[in-house]
Computed example of a mutant assay.
Amino acid sequence: MPYRILIADDHPLMRTALSQTIGQALPGSEILEAARFDQIKPVLDSGDGVDIILLDLHMPGMSGLIGLMMLRSEHPAIPVIVVSASEDAVTVQRAIDYGASGFVPKSAPNSQIVEAIRAVLDGELWVPAIPATTESDVPDLAQRAATLTPQQLRVLAGIAEGKLNKQIAYEMNVAETTVKAHVTTILRKLGVLTRTQAAVLASQMALAPPPPPVE
């Protein structure tokens, strides 16, 4: 059965490798690509439908898990597999807690990538065999962040990047008072008192970039 699959990754070689792997395993499928987070929305809003998204957490504009939550909030019916160079147990667990249906390390063999895609397309959850994390605050923060609307998640992404309210308002094309109202609601929903505390939580959700490959 042919599928429409969106590969969202800023590395051209990674997109090419994934596209070739999918083309061989699922012949006839249409492969779509996005190199930045803001290129994903036009594809999903085109009306033609996408069956699954392969998503890099660290592509430009992504803001890590915040971008993942925005994607899941706006398109809850489309499953997402995170394909990441970060392979630690905490990152994997966080990705699942924040709405991913699967997680595949970029170092995984092609057979594992195909296995993950087929499992998620069948409605299953797929993660690599790694030691379980004991980080107890992940589910709690995920539950609180899940109450944020897509607009509030965009504001939170701006807070994570250290932007001022007026900068966020300009980028979202809304009044600064609207952003201030969103900030107030975000603080309440996240259970914090200050913008700084919200920024700390947001930075946890944004995730640190993976280490560069060893030459």
Rank of each mutant, 00 (worst) to 15 (best):
L190H: 04
N165D: 06
D48R: 05
A157M: 04
A145F: 03
P12T: 03
A181K: 08
V214M: 11
A160M: 06
G49A: 07
P2M: 10
V214I: 08
I31C: 14
M205D: 09
I52K: 03
L164D: 01
M70F: 02
A157K: 02
S86V: 05
T147L: 15
A25G: 09
R36A: 15
P213A: 07
I53Y: 11
A208S: 12
V104H: 05
I159F: 03
T196F: 00
S107A: 14
V82R: 01
D38W: 00
V155R: 06
E87H: 04
D10R: 01
T194K: 08
R188A: 14
E74M: 13
L71N: 01
I81P: 04
A142M: 11
G162L: 00
T149P: 01
S63E: 10
D38G: 02
F103N: 12
D10L: 10
K180L: 10
L57W: 11
I186S: 10
L193G: 07
Q151G: 06
Q197Y: 00
T149C: 08
E115G: 01
V174L: 12
L13D: 15
A175H: 04
Y3C: 03
T194I: 11
A132S: 09
P60Q: 08
E135T: 02
V90P: 06
L68K: 08
L141H: 04
E176C: 03
I159Q: 04
G28H: 13
I22L: 14
A142T: 10
Q151F: 14
V192E: 00
P131D: 09
P2I: 10
A35S: 15
M59S: 09
R144M: 11
L153K: 05
Q143R: 10
E135P: 00
M59N: 07
Y98S: 05
Q39I: 05
A132H: 07
K180S: 15
M69L: 14
R72G: 04
Y98F: 14
Q151S: 12
A146T: 05
M62F: 04
E171L: 08
V80F: 12
W126R: 13
D56A: 12
V127I: 14
T185N: 12
H182N: 14
K189H: 12
A198C: 01
P139C: 13
P12A: 09
G47W: 03
T184V: 06
P105T: 11
E33I: 13
D48E: 03
G158E: 02
M69A: 15
D122T: 05
H75K: 03
K163L: 14
Q143W: 00
A169V: 09
L54G: 04
I22D: 02
S84D: 15
L153F: 02
Q24Y: 05
S63M: 08
E74N: 08
D122A: 15
Y170P: 00
I168V: 13
L148H: 10
E87F: 03
P42I: 10
P12S: 08
L201A: 11
